[in-house]
Design a protein around this nucleic acid. Structure first.
Lengths: 160, 160
DNA sequence: TGTAACTTAATGACACGACATTTAATCCAG
DNA sequence: CTGGATTAAATGTCGTGTCATTAAGTTACA
């Protein structure tokens, strides 16, 4: 009885819409990446390495928005097993691993960039006639600088 | 080279901020629910049943924003094992399961409501001085009526 | 120097989340 | 009334995502 008469609180609806947007974006991206044999999380790793290799596991973890807190050992494991990433022991500090793309990994990163472009076009379309910067500012305030929010800030060049 | 001089595209930043907001919201909610021994996904089931029981598995699945596509058999399994939900065979149609809350489940649903209220207060705080309705409208346009977006629309009374 | 604090990565455990397949119950066209 | 399509639920599989612990390497300080 409560829900056809009572409208949902805008705050609660925004909470669920954020969840829904993440889910649908992830589904769309997964579908676009499937022909490459790569998942969205793996695609994020490939894109980061293409721009900033070499990276250590913890350096990568600091920039990943997915898998924000922990170290992405197992995420990288699968990319190494797939032959897309090389994992070499560090020289100066033997704790640090050096992650780099293989030639196949570079190719997959290019494909992932195209899949992301399609998703970005979809977001841009939903933003036509709206103030996307206001949405961005709200989301920045919402995530603050904890965990995943800090990773985005680092990616955007707003924090080191 | 690319990232301290080149600002990130607002569209791409919004994409990652949506992901980050979902992650951080989920982490905060998980922490608030942990004393109850319940996860955010389980909390969503408890809240839905508290308002709309009895529900079948597919009816529940149509309203869940998490786990949007599939049937939430295993999600419910754990709630039944925890003694929070009762799962009874249907009468008219023996395929349909009847899900209802146990007294413990009603109690857990009340606790989950309090944990959600804290998250909603955090969202409301990030929205002060901003146009939350505009954010909501953008996110509605973004998710459309596919999968999780449709579940939100149903919850908000915008669709049956 | 030597040891305690710290950092990095690996790993165990558990619960999703998405897709696909299977099984059982119901519906419906002929 | 019957046999194929449809629907509901369960289940298999794989890849996260989070928290915790462990082990190894490095730093810092008494």
């Amino acid at each position: 009885m409560p829900c056809n008469l009572l409208r949902m609180d805008p705050v609660e609806e925004v909470r669920y819409l954020v969840l829904a947007a993440q889910r649908e974006g992830n589904r769309a991206l997964a579908a676009a990446l499937r022909p490459l044999g790569v998942t969205p999380a793996q695609g994020e790793v490939l894109r980061l390495l293409a721009e900033r290799q070499p990276l250590s596991l913890s350096g990568l973890g600091a920039l990943l928005v997915c898998e924000s807190g922990a170290n992405p050992s197992r995420l990288v494991d699968r990319l190494v097993a797939a032959g897309l990433v090389r994992r070499e022991g560090g020289v100066a500090d033997r704790r640090h691993v050096q992650l780099t793309l293989t030639p196949d990994g570079r190719r997959a990163a290019r494909g992932a960039a195209e899949a992301e472009a399609a998703l970005h076009a979809h977001i841009a379309e939903a933003a036509t006639g709206r103030d996307l910067d206001a949405v961005r500012d709200f989301l920045r305030a919402l995530v603050g600088d904890r965990g995943a929010g800090l990773a985005v800030a680092r990616r955007a060049g707003r924090a080191e």
